[in-house]
Amino acid sequence: MSGRLESDMQLGILAKAPLPGQAKTRLIPGVGAQRAARIHADLVRHSVATACQAFAGSQITLWTALDHAHPLFIELQAHYAISLAPQPEGDLGARMLHALGCAPGPTLLMGSDCPLISPALLRHCSQALADHDVVILPAEDGGYGLIGMTHPQPELFREIAWGSAQVMAMTRQRIQQLGLSLACPATLWDIDHPEDWARWQALNVSLL
């Protein structure tokens, strides 16, 4: 299947403004603060461009942090006709739940750290929600790069050890406890550390 999905599906992308010293901080020891910020900006651009190959701009919200009026966000909104919305205060779980709860129907939510997420994989995740309550793309580090659901499930975001290698295991356990059905179409990896960036460069694939 190719082309955009015309449906009531919504897609949210969580993204920090690319401020040196505040974005991709775990990359800084390997590449420096300025380059880490540039890499982050390219990752955000890549994520939005990928999303817009699978969905219409009207279906996509970029959830912003650090500087909600950063030129990068304004650029992406103008180019792709996406919506911008500020992430609220709170831990990652609270911010994710807020983003998922703001959509009127089924929703996918992703970060901007995983350029392996493709338009085809986004379409696959969207279609998985036709017969599953939850869809997740697990990450090799024990977290996940995307989560989607037909209805908000607050218990999946409470008292989770965010940033740890236990996120996916804890989330999977909650899903089982709630009696929800889960689809995991693929396991991916994020660009968080210098070795991840080197791994991506070894693939010889441009972000843009």
Rank of each mutant, 00 (worst) to 15 (best):
M1W: 10
G3P: 03
L5A: 01
L5C: 12
M9E: 03
Q10F: 06
L11Q: 08
A15E: 06
K16T: 13
P18H: 01
P18F: 11
G21N: 03
K24H: 15
R26H: 14
L27C: 11
L27N: 14
G32W: 14
A33S: 15
A36V: 15
R38P: 07
A41D: 03
V44D: 10
V44S: 10
S47P: 03
V48Q: 00
A49F: 11
A51E: 10
Q53V: 04
A54E: 11
F55Y: 02
G57H: 03
S58C: 00
I60W: 06
I60T: 09
W63F: 14
W63L: 06
A65P: 14
A65F: 07
D67P: 05
A69T: 14
P71E: 12
P71S: 05
L72T: 00
E75Q: 05
L76Q: 00
Y80W: 14
A81Y: 09
I82K: 13
L84V: 09
A85H: 09
P86Q: 13
L92V: 04
L92R: 14
A94M: 10
R95G: 04
M96P: 05
M96S: 02
H98K: 11
A99I: 09
L100A: 00
G101R: 12
P104Y: 10
L108H: 02
L109I: 10
M110Y: 12
G111E: 02
S112K: 14
S112P: 13
P115C: 13
P119M: 06
P119V: 03
L121R: 01
L121I: 00
L121M: 10
L122I: 01
L122F: 05
L122V: 09
Q127N: 03
A128F: 14
L129H: 14
L129G: 00
D133H: 05
V134N: 09
V135M: 03
L137P: 01
L137S: 09
Y144G: 08
G145Y: 01
L146A: 08
I147W: 08
G148H: 11
G148N: 07
T150H: 07
F157Q: 13
F157I: 00
F157T: 00
W162I: 02
G163A: 11
Q166I: 07
A169N: 08
A169V: 04
A169W: 04
M170W: 02
R172G: 02
R172T: 06
R174Q: 14
R174F: 08
I175E: 07
Q177G: 15
G179T: 01
G179E: 07
L180D: 01
C184L: 13
T187I: 08
W189Y: 08
H193Y: 04
P194Y: 10
P194Q: 13
E195C: 05
D196S: 11
R199V: 04
W200G: 10
W200H: 04
A202T: 06
A202Q: 06
L203D: 00
L203E: 07
V205K: 15
V205R: 15
L207C: 15
